[in-house]
Design a protein around this nucleic acid. Structure first.
Length: 424
RNA sequence: GGAGAGGUGGCUGAGCGGUUGAAAGCGGCGGUCUUGAAAACCGUUGAGGGGUAUCCCCCCUCCCAGGGUUCGAAUCCCUGCCUCUCCGCCA
């Protein structure tokens, strides 16, 4: 959520900033609602003030044993007026809120301006696309060839967009996740967390999945209205909901490996083959809660932490700064990491690292005490995949294949594979 | 599943329906003392919003959430959510 002050006092400027990401703000409607809000709020507060002071007088008069009937009469006359005024104000505020909740974050000045994902900017590239002296297969062909990746069985059990892994390939996926967790906790200073996979709607609201993206999630039926997490960002970031941190407690750096569940509504026909886009996948997620002045430095670091995984795995990748049009709803700035997928001869997203500034914090009421002013300010929140485990598995399978269709285990994963050096 | 207790400020924890936005303690901040620090002592210290227009004041809202009763609710009633204790069951 944006700062309402931006929409009250700097609406034209805000609209211009949002226009960069292709969002049109209904300036006239907002301005008109705000005018009404202001008038009604002042009127309501005056009525409340009168009621409060009159009621207080009744109390005092009663204590002295005086007749309170005339006073009660005047207060009674107020109550109807007050009630309608309060109700009207509530309506206006709800109308404004429903607009405000649906306004995306403002892009940071450093975000490249663009009209579509084609305008995303490559920041740097690491390694070179893997070369082969044979025609490389895709991960489906390889996995099925090894009889360790089974989409047919998954389809039988659960339907499309699921997979069954077995034997050494299942083991490799576990090794990948372990390796990532160890790296981030031991080298990058994150605290490992185990968190719920089912969350309340308030949590989804806090991190911006609701109200706008209800259909992208799986919701459980029954008395308990819970939803499956689409990313560990939701439970991790919401740990700071309704919290007022002392300055010294920041920054907070958390990492968790969780399954992620996405309905992939609206992506019919995209990546239907293979493990690229699944209803369920594993991800190691990084989350940081930081002081506002530190957040852009933190974004660079966090992105670096995710990159380190790819570097150690010797997987070629590039870093892309998303342009204004491609930025996620809640993000001020996002770097995508894209790993080389030989079968597709292109880089595919494997991590997305974002600074949300106060967008989540404002929704969640996550604040800290500013030591300069002694006042409370919203914290900045960031997150990034470190990395998507399923897609990392795909990248390893394809980049480490040999011409007989076997998969070599990357060196850094060998300690996690108890002697297995080759998947065959 | 059965029985009970409770959710109050950064934290712990009081609070007869009427100067209670809320005692007390801890913590924080400022000061005295000290070469400095600690201790001690003194003072100060809730959040969100609106107005004015700024660091001065005024007002509103907030004691889990949502309803209700009342001139007036942290305090009474209903619903929901959450936590805890005991018994039972159980991975």
């Amino acid at each position: 959520m944006l700062d309402p002050k931006l929409l009250r006092h700097e609406i034209e400027k805000t609209a211009a900033a949002l226009a960069l990401r292709g969002v049109t703000l209904d300036v006239d409607r907002i301005a008109s609602l705000e005018t009404q809000r202001k008038a009604l709020e002042i009127a309501t507060q005056e009525l409340q003030h009168t009621r409060n002071s009159q009621s207080k007088l009744i109390g005092q008069a009663k204590a002295k044993g005086e007749d309170v009937a005339p006073l009660m009469q005047t207060v009674n006359e107020l109550s109807d007026k007050l009630k309608t005024s309060e109700e009207r104000l509530k309506e206006i505020q709800e109308a404004l809120n429903s607009i405000y909740w649906s306004i995306p974050n403002i892009p940071h000045v450093s975000v490249p301006v663009g009209a579509s994902e084609k305008d995303n900017q490559e920041i740097r590239q690491w390694g070179n696309p893997t070369t082969f002296d044979f025609i490389p297969k895709d991960h489906v062909e390889l996995g099925e060839g090894l009889s360790q990746m089974d989409f047919t069985s998954a389809g039988k059990i659960s339907g499309a967009r699921f997979v069954v892994l077995s034997n050494k390939l299942a083991r490799l996926q576990r090794a990948i996740a372990q390796f990532m967790l160890d790296l981030h906790t031991q080298e990058h200073g994150y605290v490992e967390m185990y968190v719920p996979y089912l969350v309340k709607k308030e949590s989804l609201f806090g991190t911006g999945q609701l109200p706008k993206f209800y259909d992208d999630l799986f919701h459980v039926t029954g008395d308990q209205k819970l939803s499956l997490i689409p990313t560990a960002e939701v439970p991790l970031t919401n740990l700071s909901a309704d919290t007022l941190y002392e300055n010294a407690q920041l920054p907070i750096k958390l990492v968790a490996q969780t399954p992620c569940f996405r309905s992939e509504a609206g992506s019919y026909g995209k990546d239907t083959r293979g493990m690229i886009r699944q209803h369920q996948f594993e991800k190691v997620e990084l989350v940081q809660i930081v002081r506002p002045e530190d957040s852009y430095q933190a974004l660079e670091e966090l992105t670096g932490h995710a990159e380190k995984v790819l570097q150690l795995l010797q997987l070629p990748y590039r870093v892309v700064a998303l342009c204004t049009a491609d930025l996620g709803f809640a993000s001020s700035k996002t770097y995508d990491l894209e790993v080389w997928i030989p079968s597709q001869k292109m880089y595919r997203e494997i991590s997305s690292c974002s600074n949300f500034e106060t967008f989540h914090a404002r929704r969640m009421m996550a604040r800290y005490r500013n030591p300069e002013t002694q006042k409370t300010d919203y914290v900045h929140t960031l997150n990034g995949s470190g990395l998507a485990v399923g897609r990392t598995l795909v990248a390893i399978i394809e980049n480490y294949q040999d011409k007989r269709g076997r998969i070599r285990i990357p060196d850094v994963l060998l300690p996690y594979m108890s002697g297995i050096e080759l998947i065959d």
